[in-house]
Amino acid sequence: MKSLSADRLQDLAAALSAAGYRVVAPVEADGVVRFAPWSPGAAIRTDAVPVNSLKDVFFPPSEAIGRWRRSGDGFDAIETRPEAPKTAALAARPCDVAALAMLDAVFNWDFRDSFYDARRAATVVAALACSEADEECFCTSVGGRPDAAPGADALLRPADGGRTLIVEPLTDQGRDLAAAASGVLQDGAAAPDAPPEVRRRFDIGRVGAWLAGNFDSPLWKELSLPCLGCAACAYACPACHCFDIQDESGPNGVVRLRNWDACGLGLFTLHASGHNPRPDQASRWRQRVMHKLAYAPERFKVAACTGCGRCGRVCPRGMSLADTAERIAAAAAPAAGPAAGVPA
């Protein structure tokens, strides 16, 4: 069994860095822990869920997807390739890793997105099993668990009361990573810590059944009233993947950018004509919930929510997908059993 002293994560990062990996990990800047490029000396924070998710590594907030040079009345296209350096993503949470199934699906279900795919192929993901859960965590409600990360290349499992991290390679890439870091890994037994208890907040099956028949429910209006229509939840979400395409020009040329976008923003579906098929926050919040828990499972066989709880942590109004799902499950409850008040 290979393992690592928990306080030597930086040494692991340094070893990987020396082996040619760009290391991305939860690091703190200005009091905020973010998934960001690690630089020597930076502490890797395993005690806090980063404010952004692993998604950013594969699908950054803004990136160039096209370039042109002006020439007379025309343009010369310049080939635009993804920036995809060999990368190791360290200490990603299982919920973040789980969201890769959704991202992989949408970026490849028909047309293949070379930008996403190149970074996916160039990145090895070493997940960190959770040793704590907070009140926003709900992975167990959407089919996940805090101590396993299917889809990761390796798993770092806390052991010996948090003093040790067992390194479990899960794929060839993970084995390469372990080999690259062999200098800082030690042999010997360690006793894996018990995973934290993550409260099951709702029955996903019941929620799904309710969603299928309640597009026009008045509950949407009520649930969405606190929503102020920003994109904090969507941008923090490891599975949200909507984007906008915008051109930026200068005197000599043009860069076409893909920028994150979100269904909660009022302009997302606004037509140039002024017509908006989702004219109010109720229809936008419904879209977000439906897309995650109904449309994505229907289309891609995977929920677009992995229970990371970030939406609840970042929402300026304390809304969250879990709260909404809980309310829905409660609304669905009477219908689930024999209908009350209806004569048999």
């Binding site: 806090a48 869920v49 907070d134 942590r313 300026p316 304390g318």
Partner: peptide
């Protein structure tokens, strides 16, 4: 809820100590 570690993902006043609109 449990104490939130410094720098954790949480808008400082978001959850508002368990208060909601």
């Amino acid at each position: 809820g449990p104490a939130v570690p410094e720098g954790a993902c949480r808008a400082p006043l978001a959850g508002g100590g368990g208060r909601r609109p």
